[in-house]
Design a binder for these strands. Structure first.
Length: 404
RNA sequence: GGGGAGAUACCAAAGCGGCCAACUGGGGCAGACUGUAAAUCUGUUGUCUUACGACUUCGUAGGUUCGAAUCCUGCUCUCCCCA
């Protein structure tokens, strides 16, 4: 096999990338790789701390996929060891270290999800516990002599926590070193990471240099802004779109992304060909409504297929735009002729977390039967055999109550 | 090692013996509006109860009191200053 031209490769590699340090070295590595027909070793380390992957994670995983498609060797490091330290990057508090059991379990769910983006057959999987685990205390001491305290505390996340009188545990300083050691061990040519990983990635370069190796190129991808349009996509901000989410949720959530982000999402999280991006950009500006529906469709298609994407689009139009009960609403059967309290019925459906919450929604007009708002908390219904009543609880929960 | 400060609901932060299920902001939820599950405005926000009310909740374990988130003691954790 042979690699595409350096120019072609570079165009794909640079798509969406914020910074390549140093870009010239990347070009050199690509040239050499092509000339010797030898793939570059591209490394990504992940912490199996949160098993639910979302589109934010997909930005980097997609970049990895692009390297795979170009023919390079892509190495995914499960941070089995580093997860037990906890990456302090961007954190305002110490991360709780995980046990080995948790790490193994999380790692598996991570891999299962990552396979939806990466080409499993071309993936090299490793666990940094294999080489970090056996290091003894002296090894750690030697390693930690490579970095100064001053360098550590000039980092934003640490200095902020320091100023705010928040706890910083000593072990958190060891994290970048552990990650950098991965690069030394694997002799990586390129390491991917979010912009927030810059410090950690650069440590890898330094440690490789100390070891007499060629230094890795650091490729930084932007942090995807979440559906709220302000903070980075993250589970803890609840502004994320999970890659395991149901098609309908995925579609709806994607539509809630602010218009300004339509193009960014296309560029970073979809498989739309790079050459088609300019046309997309124009559409996003001129016709944001349809461009966003295209985006939602594309995202659902990527993870659930064409059929589901169509269905999700229909579902959204039916429920949100036309405010009708969807075809796939769950059914709840009750004996006919029996007087049922609506409160209890809703409790059965699981659409509301507590009766107090249900009553609140009722008072506020958030609950309806056959399009009629029910505000009486004592409302009862009696079904006839075969009768179907459409129930709506809040904005998104639809059900059919049926008499048997 | 010595001295000081602190731990409140999803988060931040008031309260400092009864009027506290606990001010306020964020978040969440609902309504209106919208191309949108966006923005904005309004309402709402422990659990159970038709309601009266009952129960659990203010780091943790005890204690004082008719009554404690508020006072006392032990414990755990965090921050600051000094060494």
């Amino acid at each position: 096999m042979s690699f595409p031209s350096v120019e072609e490769q570079l165009a794909i590699i640079k798509r969406g990338a914020v910074e390549i340090v140093p870009e010239q070295e990347l070009i050199e590595k690509l040239k050499k790789s092509k000339k010797e027909n030898k793939p570059l070793r591209v490394k990504l380390g992940v912490d199996p701390t949160r098993p639910d992957l979302h589109l934010g994670h997909s930005v980097i995983l997609r970049k990895m996929r692009q390297f795979q498609d170009l023919g390079h060797e892509v190495i995914l490091i499960i941070g089995g060891f580093t997860a037990m330290i906890g990456d302090p990057t961007g954190q305002n508090k110490t991360r709780p270290p995980l046990t080995i059991e948790e790490v193994n379990e999380n790692a598996q769910t991570y891999i299962d999800q990552a396979k939806k983006i990466l080409d499993e057959d071309k993936l090299t999987l490793t666990n940094n516990n294999d080489w970090l685990g056996p290091m003894d205390f002296m090894d750690v001491v030697r390693l930690s002599s490579k970095l100064t305290v001053a360098r550590m505390i000039e980092r934003d996340d640490f200095s902020k926590r320091f100023e705010n009188n928040e706890a910083i545990s000593l072990h958190e300083f060891l994290y970048p070193l552990a990650q950098g050691q991965d690069s030394v061990y694997l002799k990586s040519d390129i390491e991917l990471g979010g912009t927030d990983q810059k410090f950690n990635l650069l440590v890898g370069r330094q440690l490789q240099k100390d070891d007499g190796q060629d230094q890795q190129v650091c490729l930084m991808m932007p942090l995807l802004v979440g559906t709220d349009g302000s903070a980075k996509m993250s589970k803890s901000y609840d502004n994320y779109i999970g890659i395991d989410e149901a098609p309908n949720d995925m579609y709806g959530k994607t539509l809630s992304v602010p218009d300004e982000l339509i193009y960014t999402y296309f560029e970073l999280v979809t498989d739309i060909a790079t050459e088609d991006l300019p046309a997309i950009k124009e559409k996003a500006e001129k016709d944001p409504r349809n461009a966003k529906h295209d985006l939602a469709y594309t995202v659902v298609r990527m993870y659930h297929g064409e059929e589901s994407a169509k269905a999700a689009k229909d579902h959204f139009e039916q429920t949100v735009i036309n405010k009708q009960v969807p075809d796939d609403a769950p059914e709840f059967e009750y004996n006919s002729g029996e007087e049922l309290r609506l409160l209890d019925v809703i409790s059965d459906t699981g659409f509301s977390p507590s009766n107090g919450e249900t009553k609140r929604m009722m008072k506020q007009g958030g609950i309806s039967l056959d399009d009629e708002k029910i505000k009486d908390i004592n409302h009862t219904i009696t079904l006839e055999s075969g009768q179907e009543v459409a129930l709506k609880v809040g904005k998104r929960n639809f059900g059919i109550i049926k008499g048997k």
